[in-house]
Computed example of a mutant assay.
Amino acid sequence: MEAVLGVLNLGDFAQNFSKMGMFPVFDLAYYIVSILYLKYEPGSVEVSRRSPVASWLCAMLYCFGSYILADIMLGGSPIDYFQYNSHILLASAVWYLLFYCPLNLFYKCVAFLPVKLVLVALKEVVRTRKIAAGVHHASHAYHHGFFIMVIVGYVKGDSTLIMFKFGPTKASLYGAILFTMQEAHWLPVSKSTLILAFTFFMASSKVVMTARHSHGSPFALIESWVCHLLFGSPLGGSEEDHHHPPAAAPSSPLKTKEELSDGARKRKAKKAE
């Protein structure tokens, strides 16, 4: 990959891209999409009307939960990130506009599909940086703790789903594995190159999935081949269970002659009574 980037003269671009600041443009997009997903949750609008403080706390956890959970795992204070006043104020402004803007104008603007596609692409830039930063942070505390690096990088990428929905996102997990391999020098690419490549993959995949309203995995084809190779699963579909007998055919709704005659006898007996 390094050779390809050298031919295309993208090495300097990768370096500059990896050092590019995320605040405020990219972080703003991250906060908008995160709180937008919060608003999609059933009952979130009602909570914002009944208890604005609870709604604000949920929004802050959606935005900064990755930092809080990663700090706890590495022995830090869970409120360290709240010292960055500019980030808290920016996320709070996004929360207020999404839930309380007159006529719901801000929500309608950011939920408009072309605008949303741009926002989700920018959000993936931040997520890739967070995964890389989580792996790097963990490597300083645990020099050879590769599993810890993967876990912390994964948490940095998708703590919101872990904390609120308990549903892991494969992209962050695979990203954490790649950045851990790079940190351990098992992957023959520079960190800036990996950041650029993974960001491009994640942003393009997320844009396509959002445009198609798809909830599938961009890794489905690879996972299918790996599962087939390692576990003997069939390609391109779920394995049917051959251990259970087939369901019995539904009985015919038509009654037999014996049932009809028995019913007639019961009716005659009731009339006689």
Rank of each mutant, 00 (worst) to 15 (best):
V47W: 00
G216Y: 03
D71Y: 04
A269I: 03
T199Y: 04
F198E: 10
A93G: 14
I32Q: 03
E223R: 02
K116D: 09
A133K: 10
G237E: 11
P250Q: 14
A269T: 08
A269P: 00
F82H: 07
Y37E: 11
K206P: 00
I177G: 01
Y81K: 13
V189N: 02
K270W: 10
V115S: 11
G216N: 09
P78L: 05
L196D: 02
Y62E: 08
F26K: 04
L173T: 05
Y142P: 01
A3W: 09
Y67F: 15
L105Q: 06
F231D: 11
A93L: 15
C109S: 11
R265H: 07
V47K: 12
G65T: 04
G237F: 05
W225F: 14
A141D: 07
P253M: 07
V25Q: 09
L230P: 00
R212A: 13
Y142Q: 06
E223F: 05
I35E: 00
F179P: 03
V45N: 00
S51M: 07
Y107F: 12
G65P: 02
V53H: 04
L105C: 10
A203L: 04
S214C: 13
S77K: 05
C109E: 08
S217C: 12
M202R: 06
S238Q: 10
L117C: 11
V152E: 09
K123Y: 04
S48A: 15
A211H: 12
G134Q: 06
V4S: 13
V4K: 11
L173C: 08
G236N: 10
T256K: 01
R267A: 14
Y37G: 09
R212G: 01
P78W: 01
C227P: 00
F17M: 06
Y67D: 14
R212T: 11
F112V: 09
L97N: 10
L173K: 03
P234R: 04
I222C: 02
S139A: 15
K257Q: 13
A197Y: 07
K116V: 00
M20S: 13
Q15F: 09
T193G: 01
L38C: 02
K191H: 08
R267M: 11
I88C: 06
I131C: 07
G65M: 05
K268D: 10
P52S: 00
Q15N: 14
S238L: 15
A121P: 01
H242S: 13
R50G: 04
F198P: 03
H140G: 12
Q83F: 00
L221A: 13
A14M: 05
M22W: 05
M149T: 03
S252K: 02
F64A: 04
A249Y: 02
S77M: 06
L5G: 09
G21Y: 06
T160F: 09
I35F: 01
L119G: 06
E259H: 08
Y96H: 06
L105H: 05
H185S: 14
I131T: 12
G145K: 02
D71R: 07
M202P: 01
F164G: 02
K39S: 03
V7Y: 11
A176R: 01
K271Q: 11
E259P: 00
L230W: 08
A14R: 07
C58F: 14
N104S: 12
S86D: 15
F164E: 08
A249T: 07
P218T: 01
P114A: 08
K271I: 12
V4T: 12
V33M: 07
F198K: 05
K123C: 10
F17N: 04
F99G: 03
V110Y: 02
T199V: 03
Y107I: 02
